[in-house]
């Protein structure tokens, strides 16, 4: 599904990613871990098409197509979803209306008819129930004044509505208390199937107790320095990042 080959990237002239290669197949969950500043979030931003990050070498193929040729919205419409580490507050844009716009943008792209507001409201209510989100979040402005936990839940709600083929969750677990983490993880798990894939970017092993990865990769100084299965995460937890980085 996703092939990252020898990816080099820089921001404002500083090289952050120095040759990352990663192959992700349908149905897989990959966890990308690493200390602060290792390049985890840069990888997520590159995948989502952030304009401030410049790819200086290598390539990314998504379902055989060159991802780097696509604008952010084209990537989204192609089925890539990025859960932000810091979801952006957008005052004045109604949450439910925005979700419907995003949902219908995808439908239009697939030559399907737009869903009418009433049907969409039903769909939205169902997904919100799954995430134990109160109805009032429909009427509020997108992420505006939401607590950290509410924002992260709202990201997963967007993911649940958009049903992406590939989701990249950038530190979705940070800032969540254990109850919220459990709800978010359950939400993510319920969206899993054999046709989609997930990249979890995280600093802590804790999330992986709830969402079980097939592969764990450790990034350090812009390179994947170790890959393994879930046992690698546990080992990292007990021995710390020094174990792989020195």
């Amino acid at each position: 599904m996703l092939e990252i080959k020898d990816l080099h990237a820089s921001v404002e002239g500083n090289e952050i990613l120095k040759g990352i290669s990663l192959s992700i197949k349908k149905g897989e969950i990959h966890a990308v871990m690493g200390p602060n500043g290792s390049g985890k979030s840069t990888l997520a931003k590159i995948l989502s098409g952030h304009p401030s990050y410049e790819v200086t070498g290598g390539e990314i193929l998504f379902e055989g197509k060159n991802l780097l040729d696509l604008e952010a919205e084209e990537r989204s419409l192609a089925g890539i979803f990025m859960g932000f580490q810091y979801p952006v507050e957008v005052p004045g844009v109604n949450n439910a209306e925005f979700l419907r716009m995003a949902f219908n943008a995808r439908r239009v792209k697939a030559d399907e008819e737009e869903m009418d507001p009433l049907d969409f409201d039903e769909l939205l209510s169902e997904k919100m129930k799954m995430l134990k989100m109160e109805n009032k979040y429909k009427e509020r402005s997108l992420n505006d004044g939401f607590s950290g936990g509410e924002k992260k839940k709202n990201e997963i709600l967007q993911m649940a509505i958009l049903e992406p083929k590939l989701a990249i969750l950038d530190e979705t677990d940070s800032g969540l208390d254990i109850d919220a983490l459990r709800i978010v993880a359950e939400g993510v798990n319920s969206l899993r199937n054999d046709n989609n894939a997930l990249i979890l970017i995280t600093h802590y092993q804790r999330l992986l107790d709830y969402i079980k990865p097939d592969f764990v990769h450790v990034i350090h100084q812009g390179k994947i320095v170790k890959s393994g299965d879930k046992a690698l995460a546990l080992e990292l937890e007990s021995q710390g990042y020094d174990w792989v980085t020195t």
């Binding site: 989502s48 098409g49 304009p51 990537r75 989204s76 979801p87 005052p91 925005f98 716009m101 792209k109």
Partner: peptide
């Protein structure tokens, strides 16, 4: 127009133009 908001909306499948319009409208809406 806030670049961060603009980009965020685009990552959800809104075109650059649609996202800009949404942000502009929402500014006047209140």
């Amino acid at each position: 127009i806030d670049e961060g908001q603009w980009f965020y909306l685009q990552t959800r499948g809104l075109s650059a133009k649609a996202a800009k319009e949404l942000l502009t409208r929402s500014f006047a809406k209140s």
